[in-house]
Write a protein that binds this DNA or RNA. Sequence first.
DNA 1: ATGACGATTTACT
DNA 2: GTAAATCGTCATA
Length: 225
Amino acid sequence: MADELLPLSRLESSAERAARVLLGCLLCRRLEDGTVLRGRIVETEGYAGAEDVASHSFGGRRTGRNESMYARAGTAYVYFTYGMHWCMNVACSIEDDPQAVLLRAIEPVEGADRMEILRRSNPRAARRLAEIKIGAGPARLCAAMGLDRSWDGVDLLARSERGEDLWLEHGDRPSRTLVGPRIGIDRVGEPWLSAPLRFGVEGSPSLSKPFPTVGEERAARDSAS
DNA sequence: ATGACGATTTACT
DNA sequence: GTAAATCGTCATA
């Protein structure tokens, strides 16, 4: 199981299912000097494609920026936002169906020291870094892994032969999965505003924000295989 | 060419 | 809790 690439068959489905599948998987990066970084994915959000008002691909919108959303499952969609942050998604359907999963948080598994240096290289690095977990947020995740536009469109289900690389591996499945509404989409209306498409690994110290603890959004048994 | 905006984060009251 | 930071992208003209 260890060090095995995630197969296409695990990802090629709906955004909701793929967002669950990616929990526990390892986001892996090889740096220029050969150092390998591994982070366990502990928080994700599904974006359901052309029907989803909160998605960059709502209404079939297809531009230079979001073109990677329309690619085969396993393709990275990395975009720049708020004039200073990078965020990373994984496309999760067939070509031309723009469903994707936003990676919202990782826990360092390997190379945490380099992740710390990478996040400090951000000009707006937090003053109180000790209180902020490495990778606990979509933009913090990209900072820790050193990701930017140059990784947009990369196939995460294959390894490159030389140089830097980025890929996905199997990892320990969460024993329980947290579910809640997505973050930062306040401008969209119902039902998408409160659609339960945010998922988290219960007990992880690296979640970007707490999950709701009442009603139907309470932690539920993970039904993914 | 211009203007509005953003799947965030940090600083500050 | 609220506001600022900061700029690539897209829609409009």
